[in-house]
């Protein structure tokens, strides 16, 4: 919970700054095509490429930590579920009572894990490498509501701040004599003692912020001027179009195939 993509904005400047929408298109179409293709060699290739890219971008450790936090419980759950219980499986490797380890079940779990791993890594490499201010500026320039950009940017910057405040509140309560024991009731009481002040102060802050934003014309309609230049080029625009088309083509192809086989 400590890793946050927002920190990548403060990282060392890369020599070539790509438009964040190009990165988004690349990550999104990779995810769609991998899901549509559903072949394990492609999934493995995508996993390898994502790891390579994140290593090149210097974010490998954080990407790996975030991916492991997602994929390890998911993988364990899938292995347990399909590895032990797969009624459709026929080739039984071992059986204990109702639990049967089947080749089909293990294969299914393995393929799903690889495929989800590829999608998760591709998207995480994007979110840990993109420069958030650039993304917000690019979204606003494309006519995406300033409000959506506000929610996105505000959430990603609030996360570390709120975690820090939560720690302060816990310290304050502990200095007032809060002792958390293993008892469930005591834990619930501790949760309440920390959650209530946290939420109260957050709502209070939000009220102040809303007045400030309103005074600066948040709800006004009309064009806005952005002082942030987001790099873009004809090559990148073409690449984006090609990537989106490729993803759409993969989607349609897969659906047509499914329709033909059904």
């Amino acid at each position: 919970m400590t890793a946050s993509p927002e920190r990548s904005a403060a990282g060392p400047a890369r020599p070539v700054r790509l438009n964040p929408l190009t990165l988004l298109a690349a990550a999104g179409s990779t995810a769609v095509i991998t899901t549509a293709a559903g072949s394990w060699p492609l999934s493995l290739t995508v996993i390898g490429a994502s790891l390579g890219l994140s290593a090149a971008g210097g974010t490998a450790r954080r990407v790996l930590a975030a991916a492991a936090a997602i994929l390890v419980p998911l993988g364990l759950s899938l292995l347990m579920l399909h590895g032990l219980f797969f009624p459709e499986g026929t080739t039984v490797l071992a059986a204990w009572g109702p639990a049967r380890v089947t080749v089909e079940g293990l294969g299914f779990a393995g393929q799903r894990i690889l495929q989800l791993g590829a999608v998760v890594l591709a998207l995480l490499v994007f979110s840990f490498n993109v420069s958030l201010p650039d993304l917000v500026a690019a979204l606003s320039a494309r006519g995406v509501q300033g409000r959506f950009a506000f929610v996105l940017a505000s959430t990603l910057t609030l996360l570390p701040a709120i975690s820090a405040r939560e720690r302060r509140i816990r310290q304050a309560q502990e200095s007032r004599g809060l002792v958390v024991t293993r008892n469930l009731l005591s834990r619930l009481a501790a949760f309440r003692l920390q959650a209530v002040p946290l939420v109260l102060s957050l709502v209070e802050d939000a009220g102040t912020r809303s007045a400030a934003l309103e005074a600066r014309g948040l709800s006004n309609t009309g064009p806005r001027t952005s002082y942030r230049e987001v790099p873009d080029s004809r090559l990148q625009r073409t690449a984006r179009a090609v990537l989106v088309l490729a993803a759409a083509a993969a989607l349609v192809l897969r659906l047509v195939q499914a329709g033909a086989s059904a």
Binding site: V32, T35, A36, A37, G38, S39, F108, Q111, R112, Q115, L251, R254, L255, Q257, A258, G259
Partner: peptide, 8 residues
């Protein structure tokens, strides 16, 4: 098998 159309 994965890559099923229904996932998409």
């Amino acid at each position: 098998g994965p890559g099923s159309a229904s996932a998409l």
